[in-house]
Design a protein around this nucleic acid. Structure first.
Lengths: 141, 141
DNA sequence: CCTTGACCTTCCAGTTAGGGGAACCCTTAT
DNA sequence: ATAAGGGTTCCCCTAACTGGAAGGTCAAGG
């Protein structure tokens, strides 16, 4: 199979598949003309990666999961650990977003949204009463 | 004030403040020795930016908000529009994360997490029954 | 006067997970 | 011969910074 075929079958863009080869997640063969030649096994890996990515696992998580997937003597505890940590990251992010959401929706409701300049949103942003946001990784970007 | 002072007062890292100058969000003066020299007004702007960023506004949002903040003839509708759109982005992201969370927490509960290889998490990732994730910006990264 | 240390400067590279596009090769059909 | 529709490599771009190197400035201490 050429890259276009696996792209269609896996649902991943060809660019992404090349990238995954670049970083060592898949290792397709090469035809004599230089084209990548994918086996069933490569296709399965790519589908696995696509599914894992769609659940929000990072590439490094995927690398670990793929390794465990291919290791028939794995311990399910190792898989579960990766998943649980990811779940915790998701929960943390949701918490963070909901905190933002709460403040924002309050401000949006307060704002008249007309052609006058008076604006509670700007008032809030400009007010000096917020705790200095010092340490802690900025996740919201 | 030197950059260290405004960093302490605003809670923003000096690196970030230099970056904000780079991209034209603040324009401190320069002392004869080449050091940046911040006025009260610059400090206020930086505090404003820090607060807006902590609410998850993008840098471009911040640029717009700052412009409106400094325009006394603004319409609050313009501010509200930026905030409302941001709120919608947050809601979309929360939805996405909760969908992931739902699947993941289910899988984590199903997995024994012991030293045996059998693992429902890997089974799910490897199953071919998932809709091909084609278009739509990947937000989870 | 010299040094130490804390500050400041600029510039370069790296981060995530690819996307866009150029320049070029391979194959098949017209 | 050429056009279309694959494929290839290569490099730059994204957001919003962070880290680090190499070096200038300033106040204090010996």
């Amino acid at each position: 199979m050429n890259i276009g075929d696996v792209a269609r079958l896996s649902g991943l863009p060809a660019k992404t598949i090349r990238y995954y080869e670049d970083i060592g997640l898949v290792a397709p063969l090469r035809s004599t003309n230089g084209y990548r030649s994918f086996r069933e096994r490569d296709l399965h890996k790519l589908a696995f990666l696509g599914r894992a990515r769609s659940l929000g696992f990072t590439i490094e998580d995927c690398r670990g999961l793929l390794e465990l997937y291919e290791d028939s003597s794995r311990a399910s505890a190792d898989v579960k650990k990766i998943a649980r940590e990811h779940l915790e990251r998701i929960d943390a992010k949701v918490e963070e977003l909901l905190a933002m959401r709460k403040t924002l929706s309050h401000l949006v409701h307060e704002c008249a949204g007309d052609n006058r300049p008076n604006c509670p949103i700007l008032d809030d942003l400009a007010s000096c009463s917020h705790a200095a946001p010092k340490k802690g990784k900025r996740v919201g970007g």
